[in-house]
Write a protein that binds this DNA or RNA. Sequence first.
DNA 1: GGTCGCCTGGTA
DNA 2: TACCAGGCGACC
Length: 257
Amino acid sequence: MPELPEVEHAVRLLRGTVRGRTIVRAELLHPSLRRRMTAALVRSLAGARIAEVERRGKHQLIQLADGRVLRAHFRMTGDWTVQLVAEPLPRFARATFTLDDGRRLILEDSRALATLDLHPAGSPPVLGLGVEPMDDALTPEHLRAQLARRRGPIKAVLLDQRVIAGLGNIYVAEALWRAKISPRARASSLARPRLAALIAAIRAVIARATGSRYTEIGAARLNVYDREGLKCRRCGTPIRRIVQAGRSTYYCPGCQR
DNA sequence: GGTCGCCTGGTA
DNA sequence: TACCAGGCGACC
C-alpha cells in the first residue's frame, strides 16, 4: 500500500511483530522478485536477526543484526501479512520469511510490482530522496529553492521523490486541493505564501492518514481523488480529471487556481 | 519534460 | 473486452 502513511503503518507492524525475531527461512515466490536476488543471497537470510525497521520515503529498511539491510518497496499493491506457519498462504503471496516463533511474514502483492533488495553490510542503500514531509527542514524557503529550477507543473514535481519523499498520487491531489493550488500551476511560479499553505496542506493530509491507510479511511474522506464529475465539497464545481505525466490528476477547476 | 513497461486484477 | 490502477525506472 503505497503512500507514506501506509508505509509508516507497515513499518509499525514490522516493529511490533517481527523486530527481534530471527529469520529461519526466506522464500521468493514470484520470478520478478527472484530476478532481483540470487538464490544464494535468499538462503543467506536464514539465521539473520531483524534488529530494527526504518522508513525513508516509501522505502522500508529492515536492518539485520549482521549489518545487512533488506529494503522493501510496496509500489502499487504490496502489503505485509503476518500469520502462523500452519495457515494457508494467501492467494497473492510473493515472498515469505519464516520466523523463529512459528509465524511468518508474507509479502502480499497482487500486481507483483513490489521490490525486495538486500544490501550488504557496510553499504547501505543510497535512495536519493528529498526531505520528509514532517521534517522541520521542509520550509517554504527550502521548497522554493527546490522548485525554482523546475519547469513542470507542481503536480509532477510533488510526485518526484527527490523533492519531497513519500508523496503519491492520492495525497498530492488532496494536498493541492486543500491548498487551493491548481495541479497545472508551474512549480517555479508559486510564491512563498502559497508554498507555506502547500506545506501545511501536505502535513494535514498525511497527519490525517497516519496510523491508518487510505483504504481504511474510505473514499468518503477524500476530497478530490477519484471524484471526477462529483461536486467539489468546497465550491460545488464538478471535479475534473486530467492526465499529467501519464497519471490521473483530479482537481477542482473552480477553487484550485 | 512525456511515454512505456513492468505485472495482474478489478470494474465498467 | 477495454480501460484503469496508490510507483517508478528506462527511454526519447
